[in-house]
Design a protein around this nucleic acid. Structure first.
Lengths: 235, 235
DNA sequence: AGTGTCCTTTAGGGTAGCCTAAATGTCAAG
DNA sequence: CTTGACATTTAGGCTACCCTAAAGGACACT
């Protein structure tokens, strides 16, 4: 049986991610995988056929890819590694929130089972990474993303940021400069009409934010989420 | 110009290590590299020719390999990465001394300059790894291994372990079970004649050790070395 | 049904790094 | 100075992944 190489891990992770967007379809087009891995479409076709042979995906020509149970298990392991590293880098080394992703991208492939155990324990067996994304358990169970989108928060209701999407590095970087990071205390002060900007209190400051951008931030009215997983440091 | 791949880094590191043994010769035979990397000799010949083309080594057919300045710089960077990770794993995650090496072996290739900086700072810009091996500076300078071999210590002189060789995992494992790790307080109580075993006090215990094995341990009579770099945790 | 557009796949190559088998160089001992 | 033991190199191949160019399928619109 062929080995699970770094490349295989990357493919499985991307397929997993892409099969979780919006709809419930689950079938991931070859072209999307290619775009996300910055690889040509033929390369993806080839690899996907190989993954099929390894029993990690189901694949039908011209009809996209779906993870098998075995494939999903590996994908979740990688996601777990990735998010554990992210949390570690952020809370223990002070790597800025908008840079943990690229660093973890390389570290995720290099974490033995023993080390994973120790890493997780050292972090207090956390449930969420520093962006607020849930960390799958060793068994493959995964919680949901917490909170509701910031734009749908009721006016003048104190809330805490629970999640900031890391999909677009540029936008994340900007949100970080605004202080919109998990754990931050916020309130929606005003909603301009016609989809205009939101006025938001962040800590003791105010800012005007485009609703589309604000939608990348999720908040919860509950009492402050355990700050353990989102504590900041250094700089 | 060809890229510095993981394989290239591994070759440079091994060549560096092998050019530092015993004598002052410096020229490393192809066969030794092959043995240490567990790779066939022809593979080494091929790679070494490639490294030559990249200006990282000097190489003459049938006459061994020597690092160029450029090659040495890269090798020392990898060694620095390796030893920083070792220290981190041991002191912060509680990875046992006899297992840090294999873990660091994979992590050393995955450390950006930014992260290296942060990692080093988080550790207090240490000068030695948990085995007592010196950590090269960013500029490529490297201190010496401290202390003298345990067997040559004067009888009944209190001393502190400064270094334990990690060359042979099996023996290291045994030394660790004896408590012979950097920072441990020891004294040589007795030297049996005809190269017989040494009787050594380690902390509050005693042990009889073959002199050959004891030679893997270095000690210093000075006041306890800064324990910072060798503190233990967990377990 | 025909046709154009937009995927996706097939065909054919390339590089990196490893291997085994066979050829060749080195060196010491006779 | 020949020969045998041993190290090293050359020759030829393999796998994993990637690429571009060209062929082929899907689908919507006429």
């Amino acid at each position: 049986m062929a080995a699970v190489t770094h490349a295989v891990e990357d493919y499985l992770k991307v397929i997993w991610k892409l099969s979780h967007r919006g709809g419930e379809d689950e079938r991931v087009p070859v072209g999307d995988i290619a775009a996300h891995l910055r690889v040509s479409a033929p390369s993806v076709t080839g690899m996907v056929q190989k993954l099929q042979g390894m029993g990690l995906v189901q694949y039908e020509r011209y009809d996209g890819v779906r993870l098998s149970a075995k494939g999903r298990k590996i994908a979740l392991e990688i996601v777990r590694h990735h998010r554990l590293w992210e949390l570690y880098l952020h809370t223990r080394l002070g790597v800025p929130l908008d840079r943990v992703d690229v660093e973890a991208e390389r570290l995720e492939h290099v974490l033995s089972d023993d080390m994973e155990e120790l890493l997780s324990r050292a972090l207090g067996d956390p449930t969420h990474d520093p962006h607020g994304d849930p960390i799958p358990t060793k068994a493959g169970a995964m919680g949901a993303v917490r909170g509701e989108p910031l734009p749908s928060l009721a006016i003048d209701t104190p809330a805490v940021v629970t999640h900031v999407s890391d999909r677009q590095a540029e936008k994340l970087r900007y949100l970080v400069t605004l202080g919109l990071v998990p754990g931050a205390r916020v309130a929606l002060l005003e909603r301009a009409p016609f989809g205009g900007p939101l006025t938001v209190r962040i800590g003791r400051k105010r800012a005007a934010i485009d609703p589309e951008l604000a939608a990348l931030v999720r908040v919860s009215e509950e009492s402050p989420a355990k700050p353990r997983a989102t504590k900041r440091r250094g700089r």
